[in-house]
Design a protein around this nucleic acid. Structure first.
Lengths: 164, 164
DNA sequence: TATTGTTATACTCTATAACTATA
DNA sequence: TATAGTTATAGAGTATAACAATA
């Protein structure tokens, strides 16, 4: 049965991803400072310039009202700005502020520091092996992530929702 | 400058992990059903039998009051039970219920299905390469995760907390 | 006195439903 | 009428501070 081993591999991958995700949410998101989603939005704003609220919402996979609130929090904290879209009176353009930009770079530096400290706990040959494996895996994982939004929603329906 | 390339590698790894984490939180956590942390607690209860609330809290890296609330939610939903510890009048023992156990196995099956569907979007040679790379990387990543709780908190202090 | 857990309070993040304003 | 966004409301999940009860 080759398929069984295959399945076990996948189970193991899923469990490790879950543990890494938990770790990220807990530690890499800089606690006090900014949540995972807020820093992701800040990062998007930094890369894409002024964008509409709806664009942000769909990009992050959250509802429009959720993004409204998130942006309100960012603006309240001085990390983002809002201006009406001159080309569409209904729309608002959200952008990152200077404070947002500098916080973002601090977050990235902190993240680098944490990751570096973590990797330094490994023996040198382990880090080398990990780097090599990541070099192979990362481009594939990134394609996988790009596929994810399309694929997962197609699989979700057969969910009879067995509990309250 | 070998160090610069090294750094860029780490930056890329961190960013991919962040995206995977976001993806997990959004999709792999079965939306309607149960959050990442709730299913993790259920999973711990399933594996470790009745455990104390404090043990759960430290295992998941959340505060005692947070775990109190989380367990209250699980009990309210019929997924967990609580009994006083016969050996210590202060303590409570939390355990998974039958409904919790069956929900957990449904969650795991759903997760397997999602991951399988996702991996099937890849060309065969990509999946093979990914499986190989993961085979190398996973044991190292798991050691890394085990190190994480110890290491990260030591690095966090030099955080001047520059924003409100 | 120390430990176990709860309650009180407050914040982020999330969603759906109902709304306003512009196209 | 359709689209962009907000407000209202509700709930999960998080934390700290202050407390009760037991060891």
């Amino acid at each position: 049965m080759e398929r069984t081993e295959h399945e076990r591999d996948r189970e193991r991958i899923a469990e490790s991803i879950e543990r890494v995700a938990k770790l990220m949410v807990r530690h890499m998101s800089t606690r006090q400072n900014l949540s995972l989603i807020s820093s992701a939005v800040l990062s998007t704003l930094n890369a894409e310039g002024p964008v509409r609220l709806t664009t942000l919402a769909t990009a992050e996979g959250v509802s429009q009202p959720s993004m409204t609130q998130l942006v309100q929090r960012l603006v309240r904290q001085g990390l983002a700005t809002r201006v009406p879209d001159p080309e569409d009176g209904r729309a608002t353009l959200v952008d990152i502020s200077d404070a947002g930009r500098s916080l973002l770079s601090e977050l990235r530096q902190a993240r680098r520091g944490r990751l570096a400290a973590l990797l330094e706990t490994l023996p040198a040959e382990d880090e080398a092996a990990l780097a090599l494996a990541m070099h192979v895996a990362l481009p594939i994982v990134e394609r996988l992530i790009d596929n994810a939004d399309r694929v997962i929603d197609q699989v979700t329906p057969p969910d009879p929702s067995p509990l309250p």
